[in-house]
Structure formats: structure tokens, C-alpha cells
Design a protein around this nucleic acid. Structure first.
Lengths: 324, 324
DNA sequence: TTGAAAGCGCTAACAC
DNA sequence: GTGTTAGCGCTTTCAA
């Protein structure tokens, strides 16, 4: 910056003014400074700016696994919304581990990020509230606002589960299983509850999963599942359903003749699987976009914490059939 | 930090020493300072550190589309490698637009990122070389080192194309089409060249695509493709193949009886599509991991720019069949 | 309309 | 082994 100033024959502060409040500088001077900036190839130093109190353009996105197509799509929504304000996404994965979450929150705070959009890795939100209390704006994603007093963006997971359950019930299924995790993340637990509301009893099959092994774990769980003799199964998500279909294949179980299978997420490939997967659709991109909107709003004067709730919808395809 | 110092009854520099060079501080003092840090809930200020020359822990990853499963997996590889050094991924998408790439490179430089891993959006690498020249380490991903003199991580795309082409040729196909883009990104152009080497003539079908519409564009291209009466088609990637299968379905074209289809990437869903997709597999996670390794190495003393080249492999499934 | 100067939080050379 | 001090590059009063 000093170099630009010298080049333009002005002082540093004039250069600073050209950059931060161009209106205050005389047109002629402004032009000269801008030319000098070009000539020198000056790039402002973000760290120095931050140190002076200008907020960082970086927003942290803490998800379970950024390679998971659901989260990838969410992140893309976040990115596109942020781009409009010149902000960027710092994408992180917790693999559902609270320790990893803690580590990441620490790092993000050190970086003075503008805010954090987070899908909590565990049930304990205390560390998150602490982060918020210390001044880093926080938006919950895929988690209800509850009594946290934070901004939140979520999908009505219970409704999603209910839609799946009611569909199966209408098809005559009574022995319905839920393929979940040993310790279900919040959204999965709520979907499960929704299914149970609709079908009454629920046969539980749980997998010990940390990304990225989900689909493999589901394949391995096929045997255990079939031992319980269900006529239908709802999977915690499409990736698990994908793995499960593999496992069922290996066992010679036909879908949907021997077993109806329902997924969750409606990933792009679901419609073309063999068989085409009945699943619950969530607005992934919009989820991320909305979360980023809320986060950016946190900075503004009259901000109040809000919750945005999306509705999932059932997509019936050919992996579910009536029990005859 | 001043507060911690006061609390511990020492000076700021002692606190700094405890943080940066703990070995130099007397055990007793160190303990006192650490307790004070806990008590106060002190979080170091990354911006101030950077200003003093400590390198930023943030690495930029500039991909075509972070929601694309291929790039998502690559990013995960990057993230995991970086995590071991306490670094983080700033994930960006260019949507294949050079202007967007330019904007992102600017932003990343301002943030003084530790380095940038980039899949170039266009053929002109001059802006990238400029960034590198100005001191931001750069690693090319999915692009050969060529004469750039940069570090690069790539897959032998020509070989990948050749594998696909040879497979089709052995099956008796002579009228082979390539479903590409109006302006093929480098890797796609190289795959196409590989296919052509193997099959001789190639029927070109080009789509005007910017993410995320790729699969829709491919579906729409099905009619145009079939007008050219090929017996087989190689798609620029699995996502395009997915869309194409939809389009073919709508047209009543049977795969592989009427047309053999080959994808590229071997995304997790490929093996379970209807029909199971023959495709070329690339080590996605490893690609990202290797790129991050190279990038982190850039900082070290004796670093020399290197190129890591992976070999793709053909995965034959049921979307390709012999021409009878 | 422009410039001088203070200081954001931290590191590292140096003096004690 | 610990403290003093001088900036890192920038923004922002305030004075000229």
C-alpha cells in the first residue's frame, strides 16, 4: 500500500480512502491512485484489515462429511448465497465426532470467521452456545432452533418419516424396519420417530457408522435385517439404501417383491437405481442457501434469531410395493 | 492476550512464548500461563498472527463445482490431508467460468491463503502462473504439469479414454460417439482423444453445460445423439451418463441392446444403476490427498515442483454389450 | 481534500 | 527465563 502511495504521489491514508470510501476522494486523485494500484499489482491484505475490525469474508460450514452428496449440495447452496456478498465457505467435516467438532470450532474461532453454519455432531449443544456467546454468529443446519435461541434451518424430519411410514402402511406393511445408526444423529432420530408414529411398532436395525463407510455398513447389515423378517425397511438416507440394496442382492432378496425399501434425501441417482428408489426428498440446495442468508443477516442491526423450516416430500418409485 | 498475561502475572511475550515455543518457558510459569488461558477462555487471533508472518492454515480449493460428487470426494481427500497439519479447506466452485476463477483467485490471495489447489476452469493458465509468481503456492489438480513448472496431480485421462475405447472396440463397436461439452475442459478433451485413438473415428455430440445442469443437458441430448445412429457412446462423466440414460429411456432406446453406454468417474451409484454402468474409475480421494500433500510440501525448504500421475481403470458392468 | 498518527493482537530480536 | 520493544498492513479519527 505504501508502494502504491509513493507511486501515486499521495499518502497511505489516501490510498486507503480510495479503497474503502472512494466517494471521499477527489476524482482526479482517485484515478491516479487506481492506476498506481494496477501498475503495482497491489492486493489488499485481509489479515491487516481484519485486525482493524473489518469482518472476515470467510464463513465456516461444519457438516458431517463434505463428500456426502447431501452436504455437498447444501454447501453449494451456502457458497452461492455467500458469493453474492463476496464471502467464501470454509468447508469442514466432523464425521459425527464431537471431538472433531470441538477442534474445528476452535480453529474457526481463531480465524475470526464471519460466522459458522453447523450441523451438530452430537446431542450436546453447549459448546455451540459457548461459541455463539463469545461473539461468533452461529446458524444451526438440519437441527431445530429449540431453546438454543440461535438461528436455525431445518427440514421437518418427523414429517418426512411419517410420509414414508404412511406410504408403507397404505401398502399393507406391518413389519417395518428402520435402518439407523447406533447413535442416531438428531435428524435421523426424528425421521425414525416419524416412521414409528405412522406404522406403530418399528423393528430397529442399527449400524455403527462413521463416514465414509455408510454404504458398506448398510450392505453388511442386510443379513441382520433379514433375520428380523421385516416386509419393508426405511433407511436413514439414500446412501445407506444404496448399500443395503447391494447387500440384499448378495442375499438373493428381491426388491420390492420380498422387501420394500425406502431411502431419504432423493439424491440425483435415486431415480435411476435398480430398482428406482422410493425416497423422501429434501430441498438440499435451498437449505444451505437459507442458512447462509440467516448467517449474513446476523451482522445487520435489527437482526432477530429466526428458524426456517422446510417441508420434505415423498417420492414414490419402484422400490416399494403393496404387500399382497 | 494482555488479559491472560495480567491474570498469570507475566508479560505478553511470556504468554506468546508459552504458545509458540513452550520449551523456552519455565515449567512453573508455563503452567500458570496455561491456567490463565483456560480461565480467561483466551482464543488466539489468527489475523494478528498472520500479520506477523505466521502462515495461514487455510488452503483454497478451486473446483468446477463442489456439489459434483467427484469434486466433493476430492475435497474430502484434501481436507483429511490438511487436517493432519491443522489446516482447513476453503472450497470454491468456478462453474467452468474463467471470470469466476479470476474473482476467486483474487479473493484467495487477499486472504493470504497458504496455497491453492485448482482445477483450471479454462485453457489459459497465465492468471494461475501470475498467482504463483506472486508467492501463493499453487497445485494443479486434474491437469498435467506441462510446462507450467507447477506441482500437479492428475489422472492419465488419455489412458482412461483409451481403456473405454478399446473395450468398445473389442465388443465390435465401430460407430462410437463421445458425449462432451461445447468447450471441453482439459480432462474431458484428453479422455475424448484417448477414445478416438482406440476407436478411430468418433461421432461428436456436444452439450452447452455449466453446472449444475449437466445431467439435464445430457438427457436433452439423447435425441440428437440417436439421430447420429451410434452403437455406443462414451460420456464425459457418470453424471452425464445418468442423465443420458434418462433421456434414452424416454426415447425407448434400450441399453445395452440398442446402445452401449460408458461413463467416467465410477461414482458410488454407478454399480447400482439400471443398467449397471460400465465406467472408468479414478482415485478421487487420493487425488485430493496427494494434491494437499504437494501443497503442504511447497512451504518446506528443499521443495521441488513435482507431478503425481494416477492411472484410471476400466470397470466393466452391464451398460455395454457386444455388437452382434 | 489530504496527510499524520495511533493502534488492532501478535511475534521475535534483544536486553536484562 | 522473562520483559521491553518494534513493527506486520491497514483503518480511522483528527488536524491542516
Amino acid at each position: 500500500m505504501r508502494e502504491v502511495a509513493r507511486e501515486a504521489g499521495v499518502s497511505v491514508s489516501t490510498v486507503a480512502n480510495v479503497l474503502s470510501r472512494p466517494g471521499i476522494v477527489a476524482p482526479e486523485t482517485r484515478r491516479r491512485v487506481q492506476q498506481a494500484i494496477e501498475r503495482v499489482g497491489y492486493v489488499p491484505n485481509g489479515a491487516a484489515r481484519q485486525l482493524r475490525g473489518v469482518p472476515s469474508p470467510i464463513v465456516g460450514s461444519v457438516t458431517l462429511d463434505l463428500a456426502n452428496p447431501f452436504h455437498a449440495e447444501v454447501n453449494r447452496g451456502i457458497e452461492d448465497c455467500l458469493a453474492r456478498s463476496g464471502c467464501l465457505v470454509l468447508a469442514c467435516s466432523t464425521d459425527l465426532r464431537p471431538e472433531t467438532e470441538t477442534r474445528l470450532l476452535h480453529l474457526l474461532q481463531q480465524q475470526n470467521v464471519r460466522g459458522i453454519i453447523i450441523t451438530p455432531a452430537g446431542p450436546d449443544l453447549a459448546p455451540l452456545l459457548e461459541v455463539s456467546r463469545r461473539g461468533t454468529p452461529l446458524v444451526l443446519l438440519d437441527h431445530p432452533k429449540g431453546r438454543t435461541g440461535l438461528c436455525a434451518v431445518a427440514v421437518d424430519d418427523e414429517l418426512g418419516g411419517r410420509l414414508a411410514g404412511e406410504h408403507l402402511r397404505e401398502l399393507g406393511h406391518r413389519r417395518v424396519a428402520y435402518l439407523g445408526a447406533t447413535v442416531d444423529p438428531g435428524p435421523v432420530a426424528r425421521r425414525r420417530a416419524g416412521v414409528r408414529q405412522a406404522v406403530g411398532a418399528l423393528i430397529d436395525v442399527r449400524m455403527d457408522v462413521h463416514p465414509p463407510s455408510l454404504s458398506a455398513a448398510a450392505a453388511a447389515a442386510a443379513g441382520r435385517l433379514m433375520d428380523l423378517a421385516p416386509t419393508a425397511v426405511v433407511c436413514l438416507n439414500d446412501t445407506a439404501a444404496l448399500g443395503l440394496l447391494d447387500g440384499l442382492d448378495a442375499l438373493g432378496v428381491r426388491v420390492p417383491e420380498d422387501l420394500s425399501v425406502v431411502g431419504y434425501d432423493d439424491l440425483p441417482f435415486a431415480r435411476r437405481l435398480a430398482p428406482a428408489l422410493t425416497t423422501v426428498s429434501q430441498p438440499k440446495y435451498q437449505l444451505g442457501y437459507a442458512a447462509a442468508e440467516l448467517l449474513l443477516d446476523e451482522g445487520r442491526p435489527g437482526h432477530t434469531h429466526r428458524e426456517v423450516l422446510f417441508r420434505p416430500s415423498l417420492v414414490v418409485r419402484s422400490s416399494t410395493a403393496a404387500l399382497y
